[in-house]
């Protein structure tokens, strides 16, 4: 079952305004980090607020784990909110101490006493602010405010964490720290984190699934063939291992966790030709899609790769579904993040 399923969703900020968001269909699966990217005003924050149940759609449906939030009873929305931790783009701290801020959601859920104290301390430890509990809200830096807001969401032990531009106003060191915290959360708690960011590099570093928005619409990001794994060294060079397949990469970023291969750089061949391309992967055609001016061919070779070719090439190769062929990929064409 998908975590969120969106059908014909629109959202307008005023009656006569253009939709700030217009998404005919979108599915977000459970687990890992999902990144919403796009320029300012593209609808990232609106989408996050809708997913968090803080805004009601103008029209359309949002299903959360199969339940229709938009048409369902109000208590369904409130129940869903209990599953979620949310950090706003510019977090607001209540005018009290750090620990009371972190404990707020627990109080709302009726958690009291030692349990509340323990979970508050644990959340502060997770974000590296163990000794900050007694500090007043106004004695914190921008990065610390961001971490307190994250701790406040983590204290709730959420299944889904929604973070709106959590690293927009923090320095590089805090950004790195926050990224590590998020990755650790994925490893240790197995939750889903949906994060909006205008930093494409960051989205590529973190995201299992990247959703790109442009003026309220989900658009093809142009970022296809995104693979997650690690760079390893072999006798004959450096390669990227996804767990399902491996391919040679340029030796430039040993700590990279994401590899991207532009679809137009992948050559398709019926034979394992001897070329300068270091990667020759055998696969099976799983999809052929006509696009304006080109054809997108999906090939399963451990992972699913997408190659973009011309209609002439499609005819010349006589490609059809289920057919075996070879992918030729230059190591230099692989971009590492």
């Amino acid at each position: 079952m998908s975590l969120f399923r969106i059908e014909n969703l629109t959202y307008r900020y005023g009656d006569n305004t253009a939709p700030a968001l217009d998404i005919p269909h979108l599915v977000i699966e459970e687990g890992g980090i999902v990144c919403l990217t796009g320029a300012n005003g593209s609808g990232k924050s609106t989408l996050l607020s809708l997913l968090a149940g803080l805004l009601r759609p103008t029209s359309g449906r949002i299903h959360y784990r199969g339940d229709d939030l938009t048409g369902g009873p109000r208590n369904l929305l409130e129940r869903m909110r209990l599953d979620m931790g949310v950090c706003l783009q510019s977090p607001y701290l209540f005018r009290t101490t750090v620990e009371k801020n972190v404990a707020f959601g627990l109080t709302a859920r009726g958690v009291q006493g030692v349990k509340k104290t323990r979970r508050t301390e644990s959340a502060l430890r997770d974000v590296g602010l163990v000794d900050f509990g007694k500090r007043p809200y106004h004695a914190l830096s921008g990065g610390e405010i961001q971490r307190v807001a994250l701790a406040r969401a983590l204290a709730l032990d959420p299944r889904v964490l929604l973070l709106d531009e959590p690293m927009a106003n923090v320095d590089a060191a805090t950004r790195l720290l926050l990224e590590r915290i998020l990755e650790k959360l994925i490893r240790t708690r197995g939750i889903t984190i949906i994060i909006s960011t205008h930093d494409v590099d960051q989205a590529l570093r973190l995201g299992r699934h990247i959703i790109t928005l442009h003026e309220g619409h989900v658009v093809e990001s142009g970022l296809e063939n995104i693979f997650h794994g690690s760079v390893r060294k072999a006798r004959d060079g450096w390669y990227f291992d996804t767990g399902l397949c491996r391919f040679f990469v340029p030796h430039q970023k040993e700590d990279a966790r994401t590899a991207i291969i532009p679809p137009e750089t992948i050559l398709l061949s019926l034979d394992p030709m001897e070329t300068s391309a270091r990667n020759v992967l055998r696969g099976k055609v799983t999809g052929i899609r006509m696009r304006s001016g080109s054809v997108e061919v999906a090939v399963r070779a451990g992972e699913e790769f997408r190659s973009r070719i011309t209609e002439t090439s499609l005819e010349r190769l006589g490609l059809r579904l289920g057919m075996d062929l070879y992918l030729l990929i230059k190591a230099e064409a692989v971009r590492l993040y």
Binding site: R81, L88, Y92, F104, G105, A108, R109, L156
Partner: peptide, 14 residues
């Protein structure tokens, strides 16, 4: 601050 209301709601406050 209007964010106080949204923050409280987002943290599951009734």
């Amino acid at each position: 601050d209007p964010r106080a209301r949204i923050t409280a709601m987002s943290l599951g406050a009734s």
